[in-house]
């Protein structure tokens, strides 16, 4: 550790002691977070859903992708009826005769995968461009931010729609569309934070001490951008999952062979008027629970990590 680093940590320690008693910031963060029961519940649900998605092949009663075991004779069974294979379809079956429970767990897997995957890629791209923009300043900054502004002035759904119309269907294409839609948010957030952080004294003192630019960027700027990134990240993942479902519903996005939750709902839509509610309702509930949980956590994170609202 250099002298400055020590000074900085010392200063921070002092601040922490003054404002937060003798707790560590992390403990304080945890206790703040846990103050909202809903957020904790949301977090537990997310963990549960993630486990379901990861271990899908082990948990589902049938394999919805195995065309040999799926038969049209099982189609549109009401919840609780027995399928040809003898397994009980607790939540019914869809139009193709797939067990809804299994189809939903697999669908969840795809939805989560696409949502989180696109979120991570978008975040990496956004961080790179955002930091670069904040750091380079001048023309580069102006250009990047103009692009970001223009893109963000159009709603995500429209941008994704145009992209998918051009690119066609498929997991990879959906992923690309979702990344394109999201990166600008990250770029703008991180640039904003970086600019604010840059003006702080400790960065100035680091510059005065002649620390290299890269070092300042990664040792000092990045850690301070983590809090806003976490907040934007959670919200964006929820948004991406919802967007993917919407695109699939519109017949773009994920192909019929790999049905995400959105596709499943869309498939059930045609049977709604005849009262066969389960094909649309249950995947929708799964989608809803997932997104609500993520948003509850994200919302709490924003309240906890936003220093302005802290008393």
């Amino acid at each position: 550790m250099t002298a400055t680093d020590q000074d900085i940590t010392e200063n921070k320690k002092q601040d922490a002691q003054e404002f937060e008693g003798l707790q560590t910031p992390f403990k304080r963060f945890l206790s703040d977070f846990c103050e909202s029961k809903l957020a904790v519940l949301g977090f537990l649900v997310i963990v549960g859903i993630a486990l379901l998605a990861i271990f899908a092949p082990l948990l589902t009663p049938t394999d919805p992708y195995d065309l040999t075991s799926v038969t049209i004779l099982d189609s549109r069974l009401a919840p609780g009826e027995k399928m040809m294979s003898g397994t009980v379809a607790y939540l019914g079956t869809d139009g193709a005769g797939r067990d809804m429970v299994s189809a939903m767990i697999y669908g969840l897997r795809i939805s989560l995968g696409v949502g989180i995957g696109s979120g991570i890629i978008a975040m990496l791209i956004g961080i790179s461009f955002g930091l670069l923009s904040a750091y380079a300043g001048g023309r580069v900054d102006a250009l990047f931010m103009r692009i970001v502004d223009i893109q963000l002035s159009f709603p995500a759904i429209l941008v994704a729609l145009v992209l998918l119309v051009t690119l066609g269907k498929g997991v990879d294409k959906t992923l690309i569309a979702l990344v394109v839609v999201q990166w600008a948010y990250y770029a703008r957030t991180i640039r904003g934070t970086a600019l604010v952080e840059r003006r702080r004294e400790y960065i100035e003192s680091a510059v005065c001490l002649g620390l290299s630019k890269n070092r300042i960027m990664f040792r000092h700027l990045l850690p301070n951008c983590i809090a806003p990134m976490i907040v934007v990240g959670t919200m964006q993942v929820a948004h991406a999952i919802s967007l993917e479902a919407t695109l699939s519903f519109l017949g773009l996005g994920m192909p019929q062979t790999e049905p995400s939750l959105g596709r499943l709902i869309s498939n059930g839509f045609e049977y709604i008027l005849s009262g066969k509610y389960w094909i649309s309702v249950f995947p929708g509930l799964a989608l809803l629970v997932t997104i609500v949980s993520i948003n509850l956590v994200g919302d709490r994170l924003r309240d906890v990590l936003n220093p302005r609202l802290q008393k």
């Binding site: 919407t246 709902i265 649309s280 809803l288 997104i291 609500v292 993520i294 948003n295």
Partner: peptide, 22 residues
Amino acid sequence: SILGFSLPTFWVGIMMILFFAV
């Protein structure tokens, strides 16, 4: 309002049709 943010529009639409129309 979190619910409103989270609910995918198209699914809510379908549910509204299911309840209020069907």
